[in-house]
């Protein structure tokens, strides 16, 4: 690493240390109410105690199975719908602006409707997460297959490529990066919307536990859950980024 890079790292570590140290000292000095900001030690021990309970893993299981189900629905629906739309120029001209326009409206607004239709259980969160994540997947599928450079296709055809060969060697590799972007955005949205749905109206799951700890004024548990979500999200993000990089690199070869 060069010198400037090392200095940048040092600053990042200093920011982290400052935040952690500031948190520790503020709570140790007793400057803020424990109800609003518990000490790092309390959050740590609460998290350790929490992950040994069965109800913790039940909640995590409910949330992650909801996220997974919603994501599968969104990916399958989004890719199929998006691909079908790109097969006709008319359909694309008509539908793409409609989908893009709908996606700029905060679909969170639909949450009360999903609660009304599917009840307070996981089903409403799955429907809500699937609907929200459908849009980025479908829009990126359309962007990937629809706005394709015609010359590549014509070149392939003039060289006698079959329909399948054109799809396998031209369309798919060309569309892949944009498609993967859609899948990643879709996952982030799916994760956040299931969690948000659980926070606002649910009787189970991680989001419900976060809301419950806040209502019961249990700051240790509240921060422990937030810490768990943050760690999980950061880990998943690193995992997805590395998978994405591996796929894209293999694709280039």
């Amino acid at each position: 690493m060069d010198r400037a890079g090392a200095q940048a790292r040092i600053i990042q570590l200093a920011i982290f240390a400052l935040a952690a140290g500031g948190w520790y000292f503020v709570t140790a000095a007793g400057g803020v109410s424990r109800l609003l900001l518990p000490s790092p030690g309390e959050v740590g021990t609460t998290l350790l105690r929490l992950i040994q309970t069965k109800s913790f893993w039940n909640s995590v299981g409910v949330t992650f199975s909801s996220i997974l189900q919603a994501y599968v629905i969104a990916v399958v629906g989004g890719i199929v719908a998006g691909y079908l739309v790109t097969r006709s120029k008319t359909a694309m001209g008509v539908l793409e602006p409609v989908l893009a326009g709908l996606f700029t409206i905060p679909l969170t607004l639909l949450l009360p409707l999903f609660i009304l239709f599917f009840g307070i259980g996981p089903a409403s969160k799955i429907a809500y997460g699937a609907t929200y994540a459908f849009f980025p997947v479908a829009l990126n599928t359309i962007a990937a297959f629809g706005h394709f450079d015609e010359r590549w296709l014509r070149a392939a055809q003039s060289m006698g490529a079959s329909r399948w060969q054109t799809f396998r060697h031209i369309l798919l590799p060309g569309a892949f990066p944009v498609l993967v972007t859609g899948l990643r955005i879709g996952f982030v949205i799916c994760f956040a919307s299931v969690l948000g749905g659980e926070t606002i109206a649910s009787a189970v799951g991680i989001g419900h536990n976060i809301a419950l700890s806040a209502e019961q004024m249990e700051p240790g548990r509240l921060y422990a859950w937030i810490a768990f979500v943050t760690i999980t999200a950061v880990t998943l993000n690193l995992l997805i980024t590395s998978i994405e990089n591996t796929i894209v690199r293999r694709d280039r070869k």
Binding site: L36, T199, A214, L222, W225, A233
Partner: peptide, 15 residues
């Protein structure tokens, strides 16, 4: 930016 902010919603209301 990567942290799902929705997990901070009840805390924001508390604060």
């Amino acid at each position: 930016y990567v942290i799902p902010q929705v997990s901070f919603l009840p805390l924001t209301i508390l604060l």
